[in-house]
């Protein structure tokens, strides 16, 4: 019996054999609840902390379940042979795992006790003392920075970027490893200037060497309908390969290693 075993949290999915959110083969646990409301969000069912009903392929499906750390880890441990071979492990995603910081810290601690790599995919939009709860058990912080202009940030995500940028500076020093990720969303941040601004900020952070540009996709669109919500980005096209490469070149000028996709 470990201290964390019976800690409960609310998740909506466990995705095995994932490879783009941290090193190696990983299991991603998606936590429910988020502080932002990004218009492009591909997991709209993750945003509310409440358990919801979503229609998927004509069938009503309950989204969200309360589960203990022990139960989650029973699922995570099943792919141990693959983590061992690839240096993979557990990634917390969401939603925003910081909304359930004690549960998240417990999951990460459990993973470290199993000897596997840990990562979170996070907005870092939270008081820093909350974030600090996770850091002792965290190998990799995949942190989103979406825009340097606070107003535009607020227009598209419902929150300004002040706290996020402050936390980035702190995490650069305190997290074991920090990688900055940018969702590239047409009409929001897909100009060379905007991406270049983010890359310059990231390059200025101590210890940060890597930035990922994640092209916008509409894979979540169907879910908005399933939740009875409006998808406000209906009319935008995913950025094409050439454009992504142009943006990558703009970001590379800062000296960072730039990767398109996760």
């Amino acid at each position: 019996m470990n201290w964390y075993d019976e800690i409960k949290g609310r998740i909506f999915n466990i995705q095995r054999f994932s490879i783009h959110d941290g090193p190696g083969v990983r299991t991603i646990v998606f936590l429910k609840g988020c502080v932002l409301r990004c218009r492009w969000c591909c997991n709209p069912e993750s945003q509310s902390r409440e358990i919801e009903t979503m229609v998927s392929d004509g069938k009503a499906k309950t989204v969200g379940q309360d589960i203990t750390v022990r139960e989650v880890m029973q699922e995570v441990i099943r792919d141990m042979p693959y983590y061992r071979r690839s240096g993979g492990g557990l990634t917390l995603s969401g939603g925003e795992c910081l909304c359930q910081a004690d549960f998240s810290a417990a999951l990460l601690a459990a993973a470290k006790d199993m000897g596997i790599n840990t990562a979170i995919e996070s907005t870092a939009c939270m008081e820093f003392d909350v974030i600090e709860k996770l850091l002792p058990y965290l190998d990799l912080y995949l942190m989103d920075i979406k825009h340097m202009n606070s107003e535009k940030h607020k227009e598209f995500t419902k929150r300004d970027n002040k706290l996020i940028l402050e936390n980035a500076a702190k995490l650069a020093v305190k997290a074991k490893k920090l990688i900055i990720r940018v969702p590239v969303v047409p009409t929001f941040n897909d100009t060379e200037e905007e991406i270049g601004d983010i890359a310059r900020f990231a390059a200025g952070l101590p210890n940060v060497k890597e930035i990922h540009l994640l092209p916008y996709h509409r894979l979540g669109q169907g879910k908005y309908e399933g939740l009875g919500r409006e998808y406000s980005l209906k009319n935008i096209e995913p950025p094409n390969r050439e454009h992504m490469e142009r943006l990558a070149r703009a970001a590379e000028k800062t000296g960072l290693y730039v990767q398109i996709g996760g």
Binding site: F17, I19, H20, V25, P81, Y82, R84, R85, G88
Partner: peptide, 17 residues
């Protein structure tokens, strides 16, 4: 590269078991 690597991991993991 990541696709190839994870594919190899799958084989290795199955064979380890």
């Amino acid at each position: 590269k990541s696709g190839i690597e994870s594919f190899i991991t799958l084989i290795r993991g199955y064979f380890d078991q």
